[in-house]
Simulated scan of single mutants.
Amino acid sequence: MSTPTTTTVDGGRGDATAGHRPSPTFDLLDAWQLNPKVALRPEPFGALLYHFGTRKLSFLKNLVVVDIVASLADHPNAEAALLTAGIDPASRGLYLQALTALAESGMIIRR
């Protein structure tokens, strides 16, 4: 039995998901959603993301990122999700980095 890989989303890059084309750049103007093959489980520290296709486990240690990821499908694009979460332009880089890592690992996908 293999052990799931672990990635902390606070700047790290994940491997591309098998059978899913990685996103070389995260475009805020695209519509995004949590991958249907991914379960998001809230935890006191943030959340766990588990990809049932790749068996990859990721940790989100930022509660605001958790809220943004959970709300992506409710917005026309990622920009709207960030605005709704109250992310100002000075802080945007951190959140863009986290969302890019999630897209590259297949945890979130374009709608």
Rank of each mutant, 00 (worst) to 15 (best):
M1K: 09
P4Y: 08
P4G: 13
T6V: 09
T6N: 03
T7C: 00
T8N: 04
T8F: 13
T8G: 04
G11I: 14
G12Q: 10
G12F: 12
G12C: 08
R13K: 07
G14N: 02
A16V: 12
T17N: 09
G19M: 10
H20C: 03
H20T: 13
R21H: 13
R21T: 15
S23K: 01
P24Q: 15
T25P: 07
T25W: 02
F26L: 02
D27W: 11
L28W: 00
A31V: 11
N35V: 13
N35Y: 06
P36A: 11
K37C: 11
V38C: 06
R41W: 04
P42E: 03
E43I: 04
E43T: 12
E43Q: 15
P44Y: 09
F45D: 13
G46L: 14
L49S: 07
L49F: 02
F52M: 12
G53A: 15
G53T: 08
T54M: 12
T54C: 02
S58A: 15
S58Y: 10
S58K: 10
F59Q: 01
K61S: 08
N62F: 01
L63G: 11
V66F: 01
D67H: 14
D67W: 00
D67P: 07
I68H: 06
I68A: 01
V69S: 10
V69F: 08
A70N: 08
A73W: 01
D74P: 08
H75T: 12
H75A: 10
H75L: 03
P76V: 13
A78Q: 00
A80W: 09
A80N: 06
A80M: 11
A81Q: 07
L82V: 12
L83H: 00
T84G: 12
T84A: 15
T84D: 06
I87W: 07
I87K: 02
I87V: 15
D88V: 15
P89R: 11
A90R: 13
S91H: 14
S91C: 06
R92H: 12
R92Y: 11
G93T: 14
L94Y: 04
L94E: 10
Y95T: 03
Q97T: 06
A98Y: 03
L99G: 09
T100R: 05
A101F: 11
A103W: 00
A103P: 07
E104A: 05
E104W: 02
E104T: 14
S105W: 12
S105A: 15
G106P: 02
R110N: 01
R110S: 10
R111P: 06
